[in-house]
């Protein structure tokens, strides 16, 4: 167990250090977030002034679409980089498979947390989104992002070995992500409207269950994917 913890921390630290030096994933994610927020604000910014149910749902949808496309653009990179730079073999021979998965998972979760914060702030500034229940909004962003990370980290390991990486990632990820995206959008719309926690709980529980199920499935499947 101590080796797993140490190795996981080592993989996470290595990825963070590499990312800070190369900005391989972070730049792509942030650039995408800024471009989307600016484009949305110029196109449908007036929705931020409306507080009816339909407008709130559209705001939530736009926010999650921005997060989704930025995530699809960036979350596969930690695995793809290992294959493209041909460091995967050295890692495969030295590190326990589960530690590789957990390290990359935590790295992706960190990236998505940064993306969530930046995108939300941009939407609040540019699209003039008003948040009725901030705590519930953060809870939906956090659990939704957890779902995105659990669903896409294993897929990233799969597509890293393929030749048509970026297209394949989106194609494989979409059916996995689609159901939770709907729940996250509807939950976020509730939070924007200022709904109480009691209204948000069922959706939050569903997201948390999805995250747990995909995380456990990923832990079980990763070794086969990584070592093949």
């Amino acid at each position: 167990m101590k080796l797993l913890f140490t190795a996981t921390w080592a993989v996470l630290s290595k990825d963070l250090r590499s990312e800070l030096r190369t900005r391989y994933a972070l730049n792509a994610l942030l650039l995408f977030a800024v471009c989307t927020a600016v484009a949305v604000s110029m196109g449908v910014g007036f929705f931020g002034l409306r507080r009816d149910e339909e407008a709130l749902l559209i705001q939530a949808t736009l926010l999650w679409l921005a997060l989704l496309f930025a995530a699809l653009n960036g979350l596969s990179r930690s695995f793809v980089q290992e294959e493209e730079r041909r460091t995967a073999l050295a890692l495969l021979l030295a590190a326990p498979s589960i530690a590789v998965y957990l390290g990359k998972f935590l790295f992706n979760l960190g990236l998505l947390a940064i993306l969530d914060s930046v995108t939300s702030l941009l939407f609040i500034s540019f699209v003039r989104v008003q948040i009725g229940n901030l705590a519930l909004f953060i809870a939906f962003l956090a659990t939704g992002s957890l779902c995105l990370t659990t669903a896409t980290t294993l897929l990233a390991a799969i597509i890293a070995k393929a030749s048509f990486k970026s297209g394949l990632f989106a194609v494989l990820a979409f059916p996995l992500i689609f159901p939770i995206l709907i729940v996250a959008i509807q939950g976020t719309a509730l939070a924007l409207a200022g709904a109480p926690w009691s209204e948000g709980w069922p959706a939050l529980r569903l997201l948390a269950s999805y995250a747990l199920a995909t995380f456990v499935a990923s832990l079980m499947l990763f070794r086969t994917v990584w070592e093949t």
């Binding site: 290595k14 250090r17 590499s18 030096r21 190369t22 730079r85 041909r86 460091t87 073999l89 050295a90």
Partner: peptide, 11 residues
């Protein structure tokens, strides 16, 4: 040790 074994260039 092999020619296709690469280490992390940015480290």
């Amino acid at each position: 040790v092999a020619p296709d074994l690469m280490l992390y260039r940015e480290l």
